[in-house]
Amino acid sequence: MNFKTLINASLVALLGFTAISAQANTQQMDDSSVMQYRYGDRLDVKKVLSVMDDQSNACGVVNTRMVYLDSHGQQQTLQYRTYASGGCHES
């Protein structure tokens, strides 16, 4: 193994750890009482009360939480992933 290969392997490992750290930082809104949306889930939404991102100034995929009333008038909370564009453009 030469020096260039060692540097490349170290760079890949560093980028992997950075990606894991970034993913951990986007998991701020996790809560066991919140339903995690999966593609294809059927939702019973009568009225949306609020929608918020966990990072309002982010650019990229973030956790989003929606609070809504179902057809029985019960308040529900749903978390899903969306693309936030609030931090994509410099002012």
Rank of each mutant, 00 (worst) to 15 (best):
L6I: 07
L11D: 07
I7T: 14
V12N: 01
F17N: 09
A13T: 01
T5G: 13
D30M: 09
L14I: 01
T18V: 10
S32Q: 05
Q23N: 05
S32E: 11
S33C: 05
S32L: 02
A13N: 00
A24K: 12
Q23D: 06
A19W: 11
T5A: 03
L14P: 02
L11H: 06
D30N: 08
L14R: 02
A9E: 12
I7R: 02
M35T: 10
S32F: 08
M29Q: 14
Q28H: 07
N8E: 15
S10M: 14
N25H: 14
T5W: 00
A9F: 12
A13E: 00
M35W: 02
Q27K: 05
N25Q: 13
D30S: 12
A9V: 07
M29C: 15
L6C: 12
I20H: 00
A22I: 15
V12R: 01
S21H: 07
D31T: 13
S21G: 05
F17M: 15
L6R: 15
Q27R: 03
A24L: 02
V12S: 00
T5K: 00
I7E: 04
I20P: 01
N8G: 08
T5C: 02
A9K: 15
A19K: 11
N8I: 13
S10H: 11
I7L: 13
V34N: 02
A19D: 11
S10T: 13
N25I: 04
M35S: 04
V34S: 04
A9P: 10
S21V: 13
V34D: 02
A13R: 00
D30T: 09
V34E: 05
M35K: 08
V34L: 04
S10Y: 08
T26Y: 14
A13W: 01
S33Q: 07
Q27F: 06
L6H: 09
T5N: 06
Q23P: 07
N25W: 11
A24W: 03
A13S: 07
S10D: 12
A13Y: 00
M35V: 03
N8R: 13
A19F: 10
Q27G: 08
T26Q: 13
T5P: 00
V12H: 00
F17W: 11
D30G: 10
T5M: 00
D30V: 06
V12E: 04
A19C: 13
M29Y: 14
A22G: 05
A19I: 09
S21W: 08
L6A: 14
L14E: 06
M35N: 03
S33V: 04
I7Q: 11
N8F: 04
G16C: 03
